[in-house]
Nucleic acid binder design. Sequence first.
DNA 1: CTAGGGTGTTACCGGTCTGTAACTTCCAGC
DNA 2: GCTGGAAGTTACAGACCGGTAACACCCTAG
Lengths: 193, 193
Amino acid sequence: MTDGVAERSRPRDRILETAQDMFHKHGIKGVGVDAITEAAGTNKMTLYRHFESKDELVIECLRATAAKASRIWDEFEAQHPGDKLAQLHAWVQKASELLSADSRGCDMANAAVELTETDHPARRVIKELKEAQREKLVALCRDAGIGQAELLADTLSLLLEGARVSMQSVGAEGPSAQFVRMAESLIVSFRVR
Amino acid sequence: MTDGVAERSRPRDRILETAQDMFHKHGIKGVGVDAITEAAGTNKMTLYRHFESKDELVIECLRATAAKASRIWDEFEAQHPGDKLAQLHAWVQKASELLSADSRGCDMANAAVELTETDHPARRVIKELKEAQREKLVALCRDAGIGQAELLADTLSLLLEGARVSMQSVGAEGPSAQFVRMAESLIVSFRVR
DNA sequence: CTAGGGTGTTACCGGTCTGTAACTTCCAGC
DNA sequence: GCTGGAAGTTACAGACCGGTAACACCCTAG
């Protein structure tokens, strides 16, 4: 039971937290609702009283993950209040740390790969959340005084997304190991311009 | 039956081709062997006479995909014999074309995302094939006279990998739309150095 | 013409999946 | 102490999964 998260709290919270963790580790199609409820120390009926379907649970998990990521951005502002360029460097640093700490990449991107049905209800949620994150990074670049803010933000996005997926196929010693160097010299080259 | 590939040829070839196509479109866990054999105009017994398991079929499909990609590299050499820099630009161009033509990304990366079991037999194959592709790109960059060939190759790899996964979450109008511009200016900046 | 290998067909095994029904148990608020 | 709602339990439905057994067929090489 390596996935046990059985602190005493409300069943709904336990289910949500456990599901996040297990979806992240094993993929969405790789884990059944029975396994989630068991690891959460509850049962299937209780899950279906709080979530109308597995798809809906998946969506709630993605929203929770995005909310967690959003809280990290607050740290940047707290650590470097007003200094947007420093916050951009902190973004690079934090991304690199998360790359080292976890090899399963981005939950939203992974879900998009796994849920191939074009009309799957989670797909529009993924798109919305990813677009919001993109907006945030663009704004950070612009406020940091970068000229082509959109282009830098998109390039950094692709580098990070690529690093996270590359780790899953070739491991941490592959191209993703150079992420920080790539990102930093990119920022430099965009500032000079 | 949108996945039908029923030309008269040997069952093994039809199964392999059909499986490649369906794994690509619907994911590995998203398609069963019954669906593959039906679309290939054959039956399950015949599949299991040629492939000892679904996992083995998956591996054969990945090898076939990699072989197809390898043939594209031969085109570069044919189109620009000896001119490695031109071949590098052709690589960027071709990558961009494939991005526009297909939104389901790289089969190997997708498989790595889907097959989370660390000891899954396909994982080592994915790693080997990806490492071979990396070697090829590094060699191309080096032979094109790029100083930091490894770094350029890895950066281009991450950009492309990122573009392919980004398309699946936010669509073709997202950051991946700028792939060519990013790659080309990267090459320029590495040449100047 | 015949033998034999590749192929097709049908049925089945044991397991897993999402989702539901009916019933019991527990516990907090009155 | 009683009550009402949340949570747990058991069993089940219906579908799908990967994989196998037994047998009929067809077509080509000799």
